[in-house]
Computed example of a mutant assay.
Amino acid sequence: MTAESSTEGLQPPRTLDGQLCFALYSANLAMGKVYRQLLAKLDLTYPQYLVMLVLWERDGITVSELGERLFLDSATLTPLLKRLQTAGLVARTRSTLDERQVIVTLTDEGRALQSKAGDVPTGVFCASGCDVETLVSLKRQLEMLRGNLADSAGS
């Protein structure tokens, strides 16, 4: 069944509350408020936290690899990395193999921050008011939606 044949006869919603994009947008705003509260004690913004999560998974990656992982371009990522470097959490160095590439590594302070950030996922889970199975299912569905939309947009 194609997307076109599965929607025959259906009229798309015309109200704000009927829009999937608004449900995602407003949920993102609410999620952002929760993260702001949880990350304040770490002195991190949400995008900075995402960068740190990637580096805690795999330290010493290129800026381009980091951008691919976070779906961010270098123009967005570079100021984030500069602020994290100024805060003493990461270091940026040119690759010795290809000086066009910049390698991002955690400092000792950046590594130490990982244990301080351990309560963040639990805080988000508690704030959601959902059980684990619901959140795992929702995450899976959102990843599928993201993939479908990226495929549709040709990216």
Rank of each mutant, 00 (worst) to 15 (best):
W56P: 02
W56M: 02
W56K: 03
W56Y: 07
E57Y: 07
E57S: 09
R58H: 06
R58E: 10
D59V: 04
D59P: 09
D59T: 01
D59H: 10
D59F: 08
G60K: 10
G60C: 14
G60E: 10
I61V: 13
T62G: 08
T62L: 10
T62S: 15
T62H: 01
V63I: 13
V63A: 13
V63E: 14
S64Q: 13
E65M: 14
E65A: 10
L66S: 08
L66F: 08
L66M: 11
G67A: 00
G67V: 01
G67C: 00
G67Q: 02
E68C: 05
E68P: 00
E68M: 12
E68H: 13
R69G: 02
L70A: 04
L70Y: 05
L70D: 08
L70T: 04
F71P: 02
F71M: 12
D73P: 09
D73N: 15
S74F: 07
S74Y: 06
S74V: 11
S74D: 10
A75M: 14
A75N: 07
T76Y: 09
L77S: 07
L77M: 10
L77Q: 05
T78R: 07
T78A: 01
T78Y: 02
L80V: 04
L81H: 06
R83Y: 06
L84Q: 04
L84F: 12
L84R: 05
L84D: 07
L84A: 10
L84T: 07
L84N: 03
Q85M: 12
Q85A: 15
Q85I: 03
Q85R: 10
Q85E: 15
T86F: 05
T86N: 12
A87E: 11
G88C: 06
G88T: 07
G88W: 02
G88S: 02
V90C: 11
V90M: 01
A91G: 06
A91D: 14
R92I: 12
R92T: 13
R92E: 15
R92K: 15
R92W: 04
R92A: 14
R94E: 07
R94W: 01
R94V: 06
T96R: 15
T96E: 10
T96W: 11
L97P: 01
L97R: 08
L97A: 08
L97C: 06
D98S: 07
D98A: 11
D98E: 07
D98W: 07
D98Y: 09
E99F: 12
R100W: 07
V102K: 08
V102N: 01
V102H: 00
I103D: 03
V104L: 06
V104N: 03
T105H: 00
T105L: 03
T105F: 04
